[in-house]
């Protein structure tokens, strides 16, 4: 009973861990390079969820200051501001890896990493 209560109190963190493991599973088991990129994106999303959940406060409103007065409880603005950097880096990594995949596809005619390794091995031996 206590365990279920603890899970319910940390439900966002548990969800982010689950997303992280799903992304890692996708990266490890699929040999298609595009699916690996999708897995990396899922892992990045889990980290964003974890960070933004740290800043959440019950009954807190978004950090836009109410100029009319009246003291309101706001959420923590710092994780939200920091995660903007993470989103930009995620977009950059995705774009760069997609361009590398395009070049690999033009060179070998396949996006499967196992077949690419086989082709490379044949090229070396022959």
């Amino acid at each position: 009973m206590e365990f279920i209560k603890a899970i319910a109190e940390h439900i966002n963190y548990v969800a982010s861990v689950a997303l992280f493991v799903i992304g890692l599973y996708t990266v490890l088991t699929h040999s298609n390079l595009l699916k690996k990129v999708i897995g990396i994106n899922i892992m990045e999303t889990s980290i964003f969820l974890f960070f933004v959940s740290i800043g959440y406060v019950h009954d807190g409103s978004a950090p836009i200051i109410n100029l009319g007065g009246g003291r309101v409880l706001y959420i923590n603005p710092l994780p939200s501001a920091l995660i903007l950097t993470g989103i930009v880096v995620a977009v950059s990594i995705t774009a760069y890896s997609l361009s590398l995949i395009i070049k690999l596809y033009e060179e070998y005619g396949t996006m499967d990493i196992d077949e690419i390794m086989k082709l490379r091995g044949e090229g070396k031996n022959g």
């Binding site: 940390h10 548990v14 493991v21 599973y25 406060v57 807190g60």
Partner: peptide, 30 residues
């Protein structure tokens, strides 16, 4: 990966609960 999931969840359950104002990240900087 199931082992990793159990490890991460067991360490995450020691964190301060979600959405409390006493969370150490809600410090004097914020």
């Amino acid at each position: 990966l199931a082992g990793l999931f159990v490890l991460l969840v067991s360490s995450i359950l020691k964190m301060p609960s979600l959405g409390s104002v006493d969370n150490p990240s809600y410090n004097e900087t914020a």
